[in-house]
Each structure stands twice: as C-alpha cells, then as structure tokens.
Design a protein around this nucleic acid. Structure first.
Lengths: 142, 142
DNA sequence: TTAGAACTATGCAAGCTCAAAATATTCTCG
DNA sequence: CGAGAATATTTTGAGCTTGCATAGTTCTAA
C-alpha cells in the first residue's frame, strides 16, 4: 500500500559481482592463514572440510569442486602424511579418507587461525543470519 | 522484549561455504554460456567487465583478480581481435584497453546469453536488494 | 541371472590464478 | 632539480581447476 523508500533494483550482473568479490575476499583470507602453516589455499580448504571420514566425492562436494581436483589436493596431503586413503567399508569403488593424528592437529591449528579476523566481521549476528537465509534460498534451486 | 523464534547462529565457517557455493554456481553459469560462444569463463568475465576503455589494473579489479592474470586473459582476447591495447592518453606506464567492433558485438551476444536463467532467479527483487545491502556492507570493510 | 546403466576414483591436457621479480614510468619531497 | 618511493604492466614458475576419458564396482530391471 504505502510506498516506502524503495531502493532501485540492482542489475543481477552486479549482484553476481558482489558475490564473487566477497568469495574472493574469503579465499584471500584462507590463503593468507594457510601459508603461515605451510599450506596452500586448496590444501587448507580440504583440511578444513575434513570433519570426519568421507569419500573423495563427498569432499569434492564440500569443497565445491570437481572430484578430479579433490584427487589432486588429497595427493598432496597424503604425501605430507596428513590424510590416508583407506578402503571404504561397504563400497569397493570408493576410498575412505581419514585424517592421521598429525593431520588432526594440523587441522586444529588451521581452524583456530581461520577463526581470527573473519571476513564476515562486518556483519552483525542478525545480518549473518539474514545472509544465511538468502544464500540458502539462492543456492537451493538447481 | 519478546523472544521471537530466533534462528540459531550459524558458524561463520559455514556461512563462508555458502558464499563460496553460490559464487561457484555463478561461475558455472558463466562458463556454460561462454563455451557456446567459443569463450572460456575467464575470457567471458573479462569481456563482460569491459564496459568501456580502461587500464589493466582497472580490469583486474573488476574481475577480482591479480593484474598478471588480466594480462594473461587480455593476451587471448587480443589474439582473437576483440580487444586492443592502446597507449594511455596521460600515463605512459599504463595501457588503454579498447574493444574492437567485433569485440563489441561479441560482448553484446554474451550479455544477452548471461541474462538468461540467472543463478539468482531464486530470489525475489526485494530479496536481491537485501542481499545486495548485506554484501556491500560485508565487502566494505578492508 | 545378466546386460546395461550409473557411480567412484583417477590420469591427462588445457587453461586459470597467484606471487615474486623485472622493467618502465610517474610521483614526492628534500 | 634529483633521489627514492610508488605505480602499471609483464614475465615466469608453481600450483589449482575443469572436462573428458578410463577402469573398476555397484545398481537396476528384464
């Protein structure tokens, strides 16, 4: 009914640019912290997503990347002795990724480092919840 | 005073994952459209951001990447005859990027293609405005 | 049961991205 | 003015990412 001060619609193209810009900032943040522990950004992302044993495909999905990319990154982490590729208990096609003890403690250090100076610190908790809702809805439609 | 159904706070880490996931989806969308015109995703992004003559640095900033990356991508577009590197009118250090006529029409086709099936179509105009506000605020703090 | 579809992981080629170093130019201040 | 700091671009090397092809395994339905 009323006509509140309605901000003009933004071009979707620019909105995509904003999303990308923020993602880029987040990636930079991860990269910056990762190097202080001797990791690359991709390795740190993989380590961060290793919340427990999982398959390559599951990890790839958490990392929002292709499975072949996960293979590449896990190769590196395995060479560093941080992750092991074990046989999957029920599916012989799949591998079961498991953190080694060193991998576990490396992950702990990393998470602690990543929690500092969040790139989202500019938003209040309420705003973060609002952002969460919008992003979930946007992502939800495949 | 009242206690509205307050959704639980989400971990910042997961919120970052959501941002990254949406950015990934947007990137996939661009890639998909780009190949139908014979471009790679990076080339399409550069073309999309070429709203007018600009320097390498300016383009890199619009693309949210390093200048050396812009050099790489512009090399390709220049070889295809879509962009020209001209002398900058006032700064001899800088290059002035200009679209050729073919570059201009390629860009037109691309924009038209990118406007179809937006990855943000799951959000209403109001929600898009809300998202814009949140993202701008989040990005605003360096 | 079994043939075929679907799925998991990997190897590979091509292309993208970052970081650091190098070059050329411009800016700043004593 | 002139030296040193700052800026614009490019080169190079290392690592990341995608898409496709392949081999092995599981699922599905006739």
């Amino acid at each position: 009914m009323t006509t509140p001060p309605e901000p003009p619609a933004i071009a979707e193209r620019e909105l995509c640019g904003l999303v990308n810009g923020l993602a880029q900032r987040i990636a930079d943040h991860v990269r910056q912290r990762a190097v202080t522990l001797g990791f690359t950004a991709a390795q740190a992302t993989a380590l961060r997503e290793m919340t427990g044993p999982m398959t390559m495909r599951e990890l790839a999905e958490r990392m929002s990347c292709e499975p072949s990319n996960a293979t590449f990154v896990i190769d590196k982490l395995e060479k560093q002795g941080l992750v092991e590729r074990r046989a999957h208990p029920t599916d012989r096609r799949a591998k079961h990724l498991v953190l080694t003890p060193q991998g576990g403690s490396a992950r702990e250090q990393l998470l602690e480092l990543l929690a500092q100076d969040s790139p989202l610190a500019g938003l209040s908790p309420e705003q973060q919840r609002a952002l969460q809702g919008l992003l979930e809805q946007a992502v939800a439609r495949p």
